[in-house]
Write a protein that binds this DNA or RNA. Sequence first.
DNA 1: CTATGGCACGGATT
DNA 2: AATCCGTGCCATAG
Length: 481
Amino acid sequence: MLIHRLSTNVRTAPTTTAHLAQTMSLLELTSAELQQRVESELANNPALELLEENHCPTCNRLLRGRGPCPVCCNPRSATADNPLVYCTHREEFFTPRGSHAGEEEVSAEDYTAETTTLAEFVLRQVAAELPRNEQLVAAHILNSLDEDGLLQTPLVEIARYQRVSLSVARKVLSLIQHAEPLGVGSPSSQEAMLVQLEVLAESQAVPPFASEAVAQGMDLLSHHKYGELARLLGVSLKDSKEIARFVAQNLNPFPARAHWGDSAAHNNSHRSGEGVYYTPDVIISKLMNADKTTGSQEPALMVEIAMPYAGTLRVNPMFRKALQEAPENKREDWMKDKEQALLLIKCIQQRNNTLVRMMRLLTILQRNFILHGDEHLAPLTRAAIAEMLELHESTISRAVNDKAVQLPNGHIAPLAKFFDRSLHIRSALKLIVEKETRPLSDSAISKLLEKEGFVVARRTVAKYRMMEGILPAHLRRATAI
DNA sequence: CTATGGCACGGATT
DNA sequence: AATCCGTGCCATAG
């Protein structure tokens, strides 16, 4: 079927080994990183120029105005089992060239682009406001964080080691806690959530007594003992539940655990607000209209792959001309520049081509997941995709890793989620727990899952439960309605 | 005694 | 070759 057409698609074969190497390295870049790459190349290589005139990044056709290519992006061409996949430029996701807005605010791209560790990411935010010796304290704190972003080491110990007073250490810590992700470095989940509440309160309405609830009634809260909580705070049961809902939805007890895709309300605008660490590289949306044949039945999907620049990259014709009459001593360098520019252009095209092919296949295979949610994710390996596309598995890995995709429901998720082997089981598990009338033990859950066709060991249920942040049975409480 | 979490091993995946 | 993941075994808490 369609798969055949995919694999026999146009494939610009790599010509040189240099080409191959660069294609690979471009493929693993997120669109934000590609933007940096292209900008630096534009700045350093006189042969390369960015033409305002717009060619479609997918099919290379010359476009008249702005906006996506009318051919590649023709909604009519899409059907339920043939998604529309193309590359396009989306202003809102990229910072305009040249304007580096403020030094102190480290933008979301930097997190993915340059640093890999949480410690570095946070340190950058706070370093500017601290004198040298206090930077060391900050670094020490940040390096002592556990994987949830909480500080297990007593602060006194760090203060003593760094030979600063406890109050100074406290000051530094406070600064860290107020950096993104909010609450990092707190000694406990509880305190992290308090910080988050405090900051949240500045921009939006927070239910009264929420902080008291976190501060004093945390265990009541986590055990769903709303009645007792209400009594403790002196509020109505309804308010108590409202607080619980708010806390569950807006606060994150583990600051380091990036909350991909939950609470979709506030996605855009990378300025603080809430921790949105990633801008999507791929956007998938539903095409409701233009489906007269199948009626309202099955919406077609549209997949946009974000291109970081508008316009067309090409070798500057002036440069070409100049090269003809280049002085002897410069000629070789200029030739090199030209080659490199051509190479970059070609590689970007190939990158696009690969991404388009891969995304088309992925949206076909994971259609149900995209439209209907986690429990419909089909188990899939990168290797399988590689085989279908006749690419090396490492190519798929590179294309997938570190990229983010926005789903039709507005959630932003890592592209790697498409390859999660256990997500559907985990969400089945979540459903079971939600529906349970009485806390079920892990082995009981294991048996229930088996009835649904998922054979998982009891031990594994425990792990999934942890991943989903579900408490063990004896700490759970029947969710009364 | 039952339920759960820690450690570590082996096979699959990348 | 390195990493991730499911699982079994054992210690510990309730």
